[in-house]
């Protein structure tokens, strides 16, 4: 098991070094930050001074090493636009996105598995057919359209839920949460559904097809021949086997939920990292963009690592070969 994990960790590091290079290259190749930071009224001396202060006069490999070193400590420099530490801005925005992503992920995984299992067991029922057809909508409609439709229905027409923002939030230490107020919770519903709908339909369809496959296996027949009840067969024997391939996809999708929160956050004016990133792009705020890119890739890599380890826990065949 240990060599397996070490190997994966090593591969993850490699991935991070490469994405680090991409993030770093933005500083050098997407315009000159000096131009962005100093206005029209600048002298050559100002330019030189700032260049030296930011370390931009050093050779590129040295700059890259310095960047990696700083990034590893969570230091991405100063935002060009806001003039504050990037890490501070990110810490401020992260709770909004993480809460939204967590809720969407729970929604997607729970509903996806429940509906997937349901449509697999009641394969020929009316409800299963209806859910399957409806799920096509979830897969085919773009996220922003779903968001707008939901806003139109629940905010504009029915007036039940707010159309934008986080509502009232409570500050606990450095963390702001919307889970503790009614308006905060209400504000979470629409964005969470919008963000999680695609992942939910995907997980559901995957669970369904895997489950159908598993139910055809001999050991399910044999479980029936042993006299086990349908409930035990479906939820103990079949579901666990179904989850083996599904776990990988769920892991990747969780990363995607955070990474693609951008669109949902824009539609709902959600004050999270996605919105921060969109604004950073508009103003060519490279340190923020680089930090966001690094953060997302770290997240993907960590989730993948966890999925690989989890895999070995579910499937004993992998555990033994790794021993």
């Amino acid at each position: 098991m240990l060599p397996f994990i070490l190997k994966r960790v090593f591969q993850s590091m490699l991935v991070l070094v490469v994405t680090g290079a991409i993030a770093f290259s933005m500083f050098t190749f997407v315009g000159d930050p000096i131009d962005n930071m100093l206005g029209q009224e600048r002298t050559m001396e100002d330019v030189e001074r700032l260049r030296a202060r930011l370390g931009l006069d050093k050779p590129i490999p040295v700059q890259y090493f310095k960047f990696l070193n700083e990034a590893a400590q969570g230091n991405f420099g100063v935002s060009y636009r806001q003039g504050r530490e990037v890490s501070e801005i990110i810490m401020e925005r992260a709770p909004a996105t993480l809460e939204l992503a967590a809720l969407s992920a729970i929604f997607a995984v729970v509903m996806g598995i429940v509906l997937g299992v349901f449509t697999a067991i009641r394969r020929d029922g009316f409800a299963a057919h209806f859910i399957m057809s409806a799920s096509l909508i979830g897969v085919s409609l773009p996220t922003f359209l779903i968001g707008i439709l939901l806003i139109y229905l629940f905010s504009v027409e029915l007036g039940w839920l707010p159309s934008f923002g986080r509502g009232e939030v409570i500050k606990i230490g450095g963390w702001t949460t919307g889970f503790l107020t009614e308006s905060g919770l209400k504000a979470l519903i629409l964005p969470a559904i919008t963000l999680g709908l695609y992942q939910m339909t995907l997980i559901m369809r995957l669970v369904r097809s895997e489950m159908l496959e598993v139910l055809r296996q001999d050991y399910i027949r044999f479980a029936r021949a042993r006299g086990l009840s349908e409930r035990v067969i479906n939820f103990r024997h079949a579901l666990k086997n179904t989850m083996v391939p599904v776990v990988t996809v769920i892991g990747l999708q969780l990363g995607a939920i955070i990474a693609f929160a951008i669109i949902t956050e824009t539609v709902f004016q959600w004050p999270g990292l996605g919105l921060l990133f969109i604004n950073a792009i508009q103003f060519v705020d490279i340190p923020v963009m680089a930090a966001y890119l690094m953060m997302i890739s770290v997240m993907f890599v960590v989730i993948n690592l966890l999925v690989d380890i989890l895999y070995a826990f579910i499937d004993p065949r992998l555990r033994v070969s790794a021993k």
Binding site: D218, Y219, R221, F222, A223, A225, K240, N241, P316, R317
Partner: peptide, 12 residues
């Protein structure tokens, strides 16, 4: 059953 390789659940 015929095939002992597939008639036991591999995860238990």
């Amino acid at each position: 059953f015929q095939d002992p390789l597939t008639s036991l659940n591999p995860l238990f």
